[in-house]
Design a protein around this nucleic acid. Structure first.
Lengths: 342, 342
DNA sequence: CTGTTAGCGCCTTCAC
DNA sequence: GTGAAGGCGCTAACAG
């Protein structure tokens, strides 16, 4: 009887295997851990017993006994449906997975409150570490987790009020480059479209945009700045407003791909040739029929870097190293042929 | 000293709290579980002690003691970077999350071997259940997990060789509708583009396409069928081949959005007006400048339905119900104005 | 080479 | 109202 399910739901234990093989539980452990020297004969018997019972060691009990963590890494993001975050998740998982760690997802739906509950839950589950894209400014719960000995790595946004490893994108540099490209084409009336100021990346990208304009001697015009849209529809509306101004911008810098796509829709619908520069690459960007430059980077790299930082704390010697910061560069991609301003 | 980290990494235990409050561990448990009647005074002292130590109950130990599962749901997909799967993940998580279950992700990268290892690992972690999009035809490892008492729910593809709840999309019906739309426009030379026959959905959609053609009295032409492309580049190449035939198809039915996008690129590059019908909606589909009909459905619904089926097995009375099947309908979306064949 | 003892952190059972 | 045992499944540390 290969897999006699004696009582459904009652999974066999180490003891069951031992008893069936006529040895002690300890011996079974040894065989399973390929530990010390066990006689070939015994090993055979034990393995047979394991197979017959369909025994699978209980990792939970094991990790409890060993005093280690649960072999889980918590991943906390605002919206996993966003490919940006799912790639990030994959990046984390691809790095920690080979080390026997599984990734637990936590979706906060932009709510700091959810984030706090999630982190508390993850800490309770004794995750070995947490990778988080903080949803808001209040990060006390993260500080607390870190203080309780759970390594925290922030991705995309820096930790606030406590030390932690973090991985950022070169938001400022990317925004500078994007803006410079528009300036180089002769544009002076350049609009800005991006998420609200509560989003760290948006702040940095806006700063890069402003500083670049200032450095080029272009007067800032706050009418051209729309910090707010988080989805395509809102971005399209906001872009439409800018384009409808008496003296509309001749170019738009869009600080993420939601805004770029929204802007594209608005420009396209209005039948204009407003130049576009954006942050984040996206599929079909090359087929839009408008020249477009984007600042691109792989979000899975954000994840894999975060995973590496975490592993260093867990396995490497970086257990008590001072907090580290990794900044990923962006690279410019030009779609279509840029048109100099007439 | 609010959170004196006595020894970093050594998290306080129930006993520590008890000792500090001058009570027994049992009493602390009671307070935490809001169990029996504990004197208000004791409760106060315990809670204070909890707060001061920053104590967080160890869920791992708890679930071990209670003999329950780990409060985890395993999610096994081939590629989380694909928005299809990340939405599915979110759907699962949104349903099981409110029941205190967390979702653990497992990415198989299309490898059945990885899938087997992953499932084994998840079972070892005593997940309460598994939602899986099976990567291949060999599902013995899933059967085994199910046999060991871990409820398995298949999404997008049915279980093979063992009974299990599953959620499918109406692949056949959607393909029929898509093909009928092309026939209605007067097309008779209709090509098919889709993933290899190892993918269940592809088989069903191809079947729907073939049966619909046959029903309309259109002779099948196997030169027009390309079952293989899994990414945009391969799809574009395959579409290019079809378009380059001596007697090219006047319309293409693409059985997923990778193939639709690839076909669009090929058609667009060739400057043709080949009609397109696809499966799966995708962003910017409306901006492509070609008429296109797609069979759309929400993959998060696949996930949430799967989550519900799983919950029924875990919490509901469906513990030992016969396996159930849920089929989600598709709905047609028309982008642009369809052009009847001249 | 193999077995016994003890206990990870928690909670059910039974006493007081 | 509260506490003392005992054990969930597993494995270090020590026997033998």
């Amino acid at each position: 009887m290969p897999d006699a399910a004696n009582s459904p739901g009652a999974r066999p234990t180490l003891r069951d295997v031992a008893q069936r093989a006529g040895v002690s539980a300890m011996t079974v452990t040894r065989v399973l851990r390929e530990d010390s020297r066990v006689s070939a004969a015994t090993r055979e018997r034990v393995l047979a017993s394991v197979a017959e019972l369909g025994y699978r060691p209980n990792t939970v009990a094991r990790s409890l006994r060993l005093g280690r963590g649960s072999g889980l890494v918590g991943l906390v993001v605002t919206n996993l449906a966003n490919p940006f975050y799912s790639r990030l998740a994959l990046g984390v998982d691809s790095v920690v997975g080979p080390h026997g760690l599984k990734t637990v997802i936590g979706n906060t739906r932009q709510s700091v409150e959810h984030e706090r509950d999630l982190v508390a839950d993850l800490v309770g589950r004794r995750v070995d570490g947490i990778v988080v894209v903080p949803a808001g400014g209040d990060q006390r719960h993260l500080a607390q987790a870190a203080a309780q000995g759970v390594p925290v790595v922030c991705a995309s946004r820096p930790p606030v009020g406590f030390p932690a490893d973090h991985v950022l994108v070169d938001d400022h540099g990317g925004a500078r480059d994007a803006t410079e490209r528009l300036l180089a084409l002769g544009h002076r009336r350049i609009g800005f479209l991006g998420p609200p100021a509560s989003v760290h990346t948006s702040v940095e990208r806006l700063r890069g945009y402003r500083e670049t304009l200032a450095a080029a001697g272009v007067a800032a015009d706050e009418r051209y700045v729309r910090q707010g849209p988080v989805d395509v529809a809102a971005a399209e509306a906001a872009a439409g407003e800018l384009l409808a101004l008496a003296e509309p911008p001749t170019a738009l810098f869009c600080s993420n791909n939601r805004n770029t796509i929204g802007a594209f829709r608005a420009v396209s619908r209005a039948g204009l040739t407003t130049a576009l520069a954006g942050f984040d690459d996206f599929e079909l960007a090359d087929m839009l029929g408008l020249p477009l430059s984007v600042q691109s980077y792989d979000s899975d790299e954000l994840g894999s870097e975060a995973g590496r930082l975490l592993l260093d704390r867990l396995r490497g010697g970086a257990r008590d190293a001072p907090p580290r910061r990794v900044v990923l560069p962006t690279r410019a991609i030009q779609y279509g042929t840029p048109r100099p301003l007439a």
